[in-house]
């Protein structure tokens, strides 16, 4: 005989009505998300198991052949590698810079604070394609950057920025830093307002230097926000498209192309292969999910 169940807590009619009202408010948005977001995801999952020409698709044989196909796709491997290079270099660099900038701007004695803040945040308001095109023009062989460097006498002949793998990737990362550092800084700046100044002052009275106080007192209090921005930036970088498409056009020889750019090529520029493209998109999803889990495990010690 099983032990008798503990008596359920009594729900008053008022509480039940409140809870039902709550559910009623949640329902429409949930239904819309289910219909417009989750349903297409399920369809994409089914599509990723199919193969064929144009709309004449049938289930692949074996079913997972689009996924095994990925392992032999040299272009996919190259674009995956490119994307990870951007991720590993750009995301930490950007978050550290954003953190430092936020801390500087949080200094109560700083003058023209809102001007600095606006200046650093403003790039986030610029359209992705437009800034990519401006960067492309600036880094052209006869562009502003080469002219400036030559004018300063730092280089003798123009650097072919977008024509070489290393420099093309560098320009792309530089563009990302310019565009997104201010955006992340605002998150940190907001979080810093919740940090009690007295904790920092207490640390300083105990003899901690500014750097130590920042590292041991401020940063731990910002941890949830650092975690959030890390996950958001990782997600964003893995889905990077505009910069690869408009700034470097994937070149030279695909060595600066991102996975999402390759996904677009497979779907719309090349002979369309939507089954395979869906498989690629699911790989991105799985990587994003896996990295988010790792970051949560490493970063969130609340329980």
């Amino acid at each position: 005989m099983a032990a008798p169940l503990p008596p359920r807590p009594k729900v008053s009619p008022l509480e039940r009505r409140k809870s039902l009202t709550g559910w009623a408010f949640l329902l429409p948005a949930s239904l819309l998300i289910l219909w417009l977001s989750f349903w297409p995801m399920i369809q994409a999952a089914i599509l990723s198991l199919q193969t064929g020409r144009g709309t004449r698709l049938s289930f692949a044989e074996p079913l997972w052949s689009n996924y095994t196909r990925l392992l032999e796709d040299e272009t996919f491997k190259l674009t995956l590698q490119n994307t990870f290079i951007y991720l590993v270099i750009q995301v930490p660099l950007m978050l550290v810079m954003a953190l430092i900038l936020a801390n500087l701007l949080n200094n109560p004695n700083l003058r023209f604070k809102s001007m600095w803040r606006t200046a650093i945040f403003l790039p986030s308001a610029v359209g992705l394609v437009s800034y990519a095109l401006v960067f492309r023009t600036m880094f052209a062989n006869d562009g502003l950057v080469n002219d400036m460097l030559m004018g300063l006498g730092l280089i003798d002949s123009p650097v072919n920025w977008l024509g070489q793998t290393g420099t093309a990737r560098f320009v792309l990362v530089l563009g990302l830093l310019w565009r997104w550092t201010g955006y992340n800084m605002i998150f940190y700046l907001a979080a810093l307002q919740t940090v009690d100044r007295s904790t920092i002052e207490a640390a300083k009275i105990d003899g901690a230097s500014s750097a130590k106080a920042f590292w041991y007192v401020t940063v731990p209090q910002l941890k949830p926000m650092i975690l959030l921005t890390a996950i958001l930036s990782t997600n964003g970088t893995l889905q990077l498209f505009d910069e690869s498409y408009a700034l470097t056009a994937g070149g030279p020889a695909n060595t600066s192309m991102t996975i999402s750019h390759y996904l677009y090529m497979v779907s719309f520029r090349n002979s369309p292969n939507f089954g395979y493209a869906s498989a690629i998109s699911y790989v991105i999803l799985i990587i994003v999910a896996a990295l988010a889990v790792v970051q949560l495990k490493v970063g969130d010690k609340r329980d």
Partner: peptide, 17 residues
């Protein structure tokens, strides 16, 4: 009124969609 509001909240977006 509360119930009406809840129902409207549920139905309106769906209706629009």
């Amino acid at each position: 009124t509360a119930r009406k509001l809840a129902v409207m909240a549920a139905v309106l977006p769906l209706g629009l969609a």
